[in-house]
């Protein structure tokens, strides 16, 4: 049975959550319109690692991140960042949403977008003062976009827009980053820049969970991988988990029965 062949069994989650664990998800089930899209996810992210979240389309990668951040309500289970609920740790968590999630025709400049990462620190009603603008500019410079600070965001290329989003998360100076498909549809230069930033973050002891779709680069870019297909297929160090058998399991179509039962739950109008 698979459980036995798996290396590095997952930590048993009944125990006390250690404060050092950047993100621990315990027994989380998420449902859209009562249909479960993620079942019983149990995962403790190791600190100081780059972690890829990998799985086929519709396997719940984005949902995992959104549920962890409370953007999608979880039907059951709990999520902790450094041992505490997210609401008390917002400052330590950086979020890079999918590029398509916003209207890039919005009348703001790249610098304005990056400054949004600082709003939490600035607080209610207080304007973005020069100090914060300098900070935002520094974050832009880290992704190699300082020259584009005053461009309106629709005039940036897809890769540049992605870098602006990354800079916004960097400006938060968080300890754990959740990124949703930062590599989707970007040019080679941006991909290199993002990887460099990720490695820099790791060297500072920070953790990044990145939804990733390019299987070929997983082993190059990441230390750990989390294979997902409605359920957690496997998780752990890349070299141990990223095996063809596990991949086949994750990508070999959705497990038909799982899907069918989920569908029945939706029709019945319930789950629990």
């Amino acid at each position: 049975m698979i459980t036995r062949t798996l290396p590095a069994p997952l930590p048993i989650s009944d125990q006390e959550h250690p404060g050092s664990c950047p993100l621990s998800i315990h027994d989380m089930t998420v449902a859209y319109h009562r249909r479960p899209v993620l079942w019983d996810i149990d995962y403790d992210a190791p600190p100081g690692k780059l972690i890829a979240i990998v799985g086929p389309n519709g396997s719940g990668k984005t949902t995992l991140i959104k549920a962890a951040l409370g953007l999608v309500p979880a039907a059951s289970g709990e999520v902790r960042f450094f041992g505490m609920r997210y609401a008390r740790q917002r400052g330590r968590v950086g979020y890079v949403p999918q590029r398509e999630s916003v209207d890039w025709d919005f009348p703001v400049s790249a610098l304005d977008v990056v400054a949004m990462g600082l709003y939490g620190r600035i607080g209610w009603c207080w304007p973005v003062t020069r100090r914060y603008q300098r900070e935002a500019l520094a974050a832009l410079a880290r992704v190699g976009m300082a020259d584009y600070a005053h461009r309106q965001i629709s005039q940036l290329s897809g890769g540049q827009q992605q870098r602006v989003f990354l800079a916004r998360a960097l400006a938060q100076s968080a300890d754990v980053y959740l990124m949703d498909e930062p590599f989707a549809g970007v040019d080679a230069a941006t991909e290199r820049a993002i990887v460099e930033i990720l490695r820099e973050l790791r060297s500072q002891g920070k953790t990044a969970l990145v939804v990733h779709h390019d299987l070929q680069t997983v082993t190059d870019y990441f230390d750990e991988v989390l294979l997902l297909n409605m359920r957690l297929i496997a998780a752990g160090p890349v070299e141990q988990v990223f095996t063809s058998e596990n991949l086949r399991k994750a990508y070999g179509g959705k497990l038909a029965l799982l899907d069918e039962v989920g569908h029945k739950m939706r029709l019945a109008g319930g789950g629990q």
């Binding site: 959104k66 409370g70 609401a87 917002r90 968590v93 979020y95 304005d112 949004m116 207080w126």
Partner: peptide, 22 residues
């Protein structure tokens, strides 16, 4: 004027605003 920053953030990226606790 007072909520300028908050209003534009919510208009631009509601999800990010929610994640940041606004």
């Amino acid at each position: 004027a007072l909520l300028f920053k908050e209003l534009s953030l919510v208009c631009f990226d509601e999800d990010f605003a929610a994640v940041q606790g606004w």
